[in-house]
Design a protein around this nucleic acid. Structure first.
Length: 803
RNA sequence: GGAGGCUUAGCUCAGCUGGUAGAGUACCUGCCUUACAAGCAGAGGGUCAUAGGUUCGAGCCCUAUAGCCUCCACCA
């Protein structure tokens, strides 16, 4: 028997345990069609917030739906624990920088810390009822992942898509590492626009350049003006004398100079921005590297060496001003590129790094984007936009400690890279040596290890490879290529989705997945994203689960449209709580009435039973349609609407028959029993996608024809009750009108209706006649008189017994 | 500046290939009805952002405008 009150705390713990012990979500390749999900390994960055629950729940619900539709679900969970986010977390907790702790000790701390937080994540996702096979869980820093990531790297090198090159790269002098374009964010800052006078070498003509970065004066390698700029074009071909610095540089022409920006004359430094790099390459300009890797001016720069960038800026402006070079200084607010992990302005550094070729294959990436179904469809635009605008090859070198090592050494003599052999993976070049001699002619046996580690994304872009155990003996490549579904939030389309597509293209020349589903964000307040760094989430998910139950929290997470941002809403939780409670109560009611029920072949249903079954059939069609489009929230809404109608109307109608067979007959009671038995079963299945716990509890108590409700399959109903659905809705409208009349008279709904007169067409009167007993019992009506009209139907008289 | 999205009841949001505006919630009014008061029944509440256009007919399609949001670019 179901308990009088449902205790979520107790039951949820019980079923979690049961699912675990019985390995309900275990993935075993069998003959069935596989539905595979590539879900984001959360970055282990400390704080878990409600946004995590939101985006992970929706995919999880899809996995449950597909399982109910008979698919074999491959749905592993992962943790992205390598890389900068973990390092920063440790640095923050330790109050020390990585280099102060030392490479090995620091890595050790990273392992420990990420493990601690991973357990917290795991606890949360388990408590939420996430139906994943933990046997397939992966970590991006585990030896098996390192192996696959290194294998991927070596393959790309072999195929010529990955190269080692001295090149300017984005540099963060807070994190002391190079970074990729995708790791940049923009930030508004206040700065000054400095108008500085230069002179030509030839005739000493004065011209003015406006710059926000006067500290780059020693790094100027050229001055540019637009050839169409009538005011300044005469300068082209002359030479410019740089103030304060004893240097003379050419004045050159380039169309890219905006005539109306600043003074229309630009200084080109190595490097201040991307245009500088472009010009540097295009015109083969010399290199003047004036920054050190930790954000200072190089010591060889006269007067300013050793100063931090901002100090140098201040001093140079002061010196320029003292010597009369400054025309004016304007206040300026503009946006700069900062590193997303630390918020510090990105600089450029020139060093030898590993790059993955992006620029040569943009068209291929776009093509793959076209081959993937995006949900919602407009999210593809974000991908296209990014691919079209990406300006750099992907730099995957990071001058950090906690990451996947490059399986590379360099020959001490000739500097040539030597790569690890496939059979030796995974390797750490810092603690091992190559087994072969230097490949090139020198034959040297001494090697310098590559100290850099790979960018986090270089590894997380291989999640499909990790999932399929790429290149391993037990590879699942034949069933996971491509995977069925990738799910993530919109912010990582440009990183995770993009890079995964890049790798999939290089490895297989193929799309990595059939579908991508993009979720929105949870907003803390209107227009304010919940973010880990801001700590503006008021609601700890564990607290919410304890207060409302996992099922109810899932209700909140499952509402809302795909790809649309959502506000955190207590109201939605309350609504979910009511719904879950209602499911419990109606199940109790049905349980009470099916004690003596025996399932047998039966098709001679009462009218309203046909109505309820037919409506369910219709509802389920729409329900599945939404879920096939990954619209979890709309499906839930649709189901919920049917469910309340079922409770408030159908149960109210059928209960009289169930209670009083002596009055209605055993057959009519059986018809009702069979209907509620069938409908509840299906409702539990449908709801189990969202509420895995309470539905399991009811299912096990009432049905129990399988090990778990989550292993059952949804079988579509095949009734032909369209007429009953249509006319039944009208009869319910009559019922509603009579109830309204009673309420208007402030009397109980049990008040007797002495006379009820209805005019209606042939169809509706026919149905009314079939349903007459139920209809009268529901309304407590003594007499129902009908009159035939040509079309439609309405009540003409309601006479209540108001005594 | 580029791309995309949003604007519908006090609030949170649905609204399918154009056909008389929907839900939940809040507020108000009734009702202890043999599953449920965490319930049931009902009432009020909307120039569908604005202005044009297409159409017999527009919340929906087209154009422009405004406000908000997200991503990207903009460092001279």
């Amino acid at each position: 028997m179901l308990d009088k009150k449902y205790s979520a705390q107790e039951k949820e713990a019980k079923w979690l345990n049961y699912w675990n012990e019985n390995q309900i979500y275990k993935f075993i390749p069998d003959g069935r069609k596989v539905f595979s999900i590539d879900t984001p390994p959360p970055t282990v960055s400390g704080k878990i917030h409600i946004g995590h629950v939101f985006s992970y729940s929706q995919v999880e619900m899809i996995s449950r739906y597909k399982r109910l539709r008979g698919f074999n679900i491959f749905y592993p969970f992962g943790f992205d624990d390598n890389g900068l986010p973990s390092e920063r977390l440790v640095e923050k907790e330790q109050g020390k920088k990585a280099h102060e702790i030392g490479r090995e000790a620091f890595s050790e701390l990273c392992y420990k810390t990420t493990e601690k937080y991973e357990n917290e994540f795991k606890t949360l996702f388990s408590k939420l009822g996430v139906g994943t096979d933990w046997n397939y869980a992966y970590k991006t820093i585990s030896p098996s992942t390192i192996k696959i990531s290194q294998r991927s790297f070596l393959q790309l090198v072999k195929d010529g898509h990955c190269y080692h090159k001295q090149s300017p790269a984005l540099w963060c002098n807070e994190c002391l590492t190079s970074i990729a374009q995708a790791e940049l964010e923009t930030k508004k800052i206040k700065t000054t626009f400095n108008f500085i006078n230069f002179k030509t070498l030839e005739n000493g003509e004065t011209f003015t350049i406006a710059t926000t970065r006067p500290e780059l004066l020693p790094a100027i390698v050229a001055v540019f003006v637009n050839p169409k700029d009538e005011k300044h074009s005469h300068l082209i071909g002359k030479k410019a004398v740089i103030p304060l610095v004893d240097a003379v540089v050419p004045i050159m022409a380039d169309e890219k100079v905006a005539i109306d920006k600043g003074t229309g004359i630009v200084m080109c430094c190595t490097f201040g921005d991307q245009t500088d790099i472009e010009w540097w390459k295009k015109y083969n300009l010399p290199l003047k590297n004036i920054f050190t890797s930790d954000g200072k001016i190089a010591s060889e720069v006269k007067n300013y060496g050793g100063l931090k960038i901002l100090e140098a800026r201040k001093k140079i402006v002061q010196d320029l001003s003292d010597q009369g070079y400054v025309v004016k200084i304007e206040e300026l607010e503009h946006e700069v590129q900062v590193h997303e992990r630390c918020g510090k302005e990105a600089e450029y550094a020139v060093m030898k790094q590993w790059f993955i070729n992006i620029m040569d294959h943009k068209k291929d990436f776009l093509k793959i984007g076209d081959q993937i179904k995006w949900h919602p469809a407009h999210m593809k635009a974000r991908f296209n936009e990014w691919v079209n605008n990406v300006a750099w090859d992907w730099c995957i070198s990071r001058q950090r400690y906690f990451g996947v090592p490059f399986p590379v050494w360099y020959c001490k003599k000739c500097g040539e890279p030597v790569f690890a052999r496939e059979e030796d993976l995974p390797v750490n070049p810092l603690t091992s040596q190559p087994k072969q001699k230097c490949c090139s002619k020198c034959g040297c046996k001494e090697f310098v290890p590559e100290k850099d580690v790979m960018d986090t994304w270089a590894t997380s872009s291989t999640t499909p490879l990790i999932n399929m155990r790429y290149g391993e003996k037990n590879s699942l490549e034949n069933i996971l290529r491509p995977m069925t579904l990738r799910a993530n939030a919109s912010e990582i389309i440009r990183t995770w989705d993009f890079y995964t597509i890049v790798k999939s293209f290089y490895h297989f020349g193929q799309k990595p997945w059939e579908n991508v589903m993009i979720s929105g964000f949870v907003m803390a307040n209107k227009g304010e994203k919940i973010s880990k760094s801001k700590g503006n989430s008021k609601n700890d998910p564990i607290d919410l689960i304890n207060e409302y139950s996992a099922d109810v929290v899932r209700y909140w997470a499952g509402s809302g449209r795909l790809g649309t941002d959502m506000l955190f809403s207590e109201e939605t939780l309350l609504r979910g709580r009511k719904l879950v409670n209602k499911i419990w109560n109606v199940a109790k009611f049905i349980e009470m009435h099916i004690q003596d029920f025996k399932d047998k072949k039966f098709s001679d249903y009462e009218f309203f039973d046909k109505w309820a079954l037919g409506s369910l059939q219709e509802m389920e069609k729409g329900f599945c349609k939404y879920l096939d489009e990954f619209e979890v929230g709309l499906a839930l809404n649709h189901l919920e609407k049917y469910f309340w109608n079922f409770c408030d109307n159908y149960i109210e109608i059928v209960k009289h028959r169930l209670y009083r067979p002596e009055e209605f007959g055993e057959k009519a009671r059986y018809s009702g029993q069979k209907a509620v038995y069938t409908i509840l079963y299906k409702l539990l299945q449908d709801f189990s996608i969202f509420f895995p716990f309470i539905t399991e509890e009811i299912y096990q108590e009432l049905y129990h024809d399988n090990k778990s409700i989550h292993l059952t399959t949804i079988k579509p109903l095949k009734f032909d009750f369209a007429k009953e659905v249509e006319q039944g809705d009208k009869l319910v409208e009559f019922i509603s009108a009579v109830r309204g009349e009673k309420t208007n008279h402030n009397v109980s709904l049990k008040t007797t209706v002495k006379n009820l007169c209805i005019s209606g067409d042939e169809n509706i009167l026919d149905c009314l006649q079939q349903a007459c007993k139920d209809f009268k019992a529901t309304l407590f009506a003594e007499n129902v008189k009908t009159r035939k009209i040509k079309k439609g139907g309405h009540i003409t008289k309601i006479e209540l017994d108001l005594q």
